[in-house]
């Protein structure tokens, strides 16, 4: 591929899109791992209990709330 093509807006747009997808992907994967460890305590059943699925959604949402607090805490430090 012609190196100049790397600067084409079309390709830049594509790369930015894929970057964003990768970030979302990574966040979902990370939260699934963390919340799985917290919420699925026994051996996995053939269906999640309502407690387990509620715990999973709450876990993801609280993790985001926490991230925000941490960012704010650091911002107020300088």
């Amino acid at each position: 591929m012609d190196p100049a093509a790397l600067n084409s807006p079309e390709l830049q747009h594509f790369i930015n899109q894929e970057k964003e997808k990768a970030m979302v992907n990574e966040m979902v994967a990370k939260l699934t791992s963390v919340c799985w460890d917290k919420c699925v305590t026994g051996t996995p059943g053939s269906k999640f209990s309502s407690g387990e699925s509620t715990c999973l959604s709450h876990c993801a949402q609280r993790y985001m709330d926490m991230s925000l607090i941490i960012v704010k805490r650091f911002q107020s430090m300088h």
Binding site: M27, V28, A29, L31, T32, C35, W36, V40, T43, P44, G45, S46, F48, S53, L56, S57, H58, C59, A60, Q61, M64
Partner: peptide
Amino acid sequence: SCISRCVDRYIEATGIISKAL
């Protein structure tokens, strides 16, 4: 059988997390 259920639940958990987010 635990492994099969675990795989299914992990995939389901991934869905629950993306929905929650």
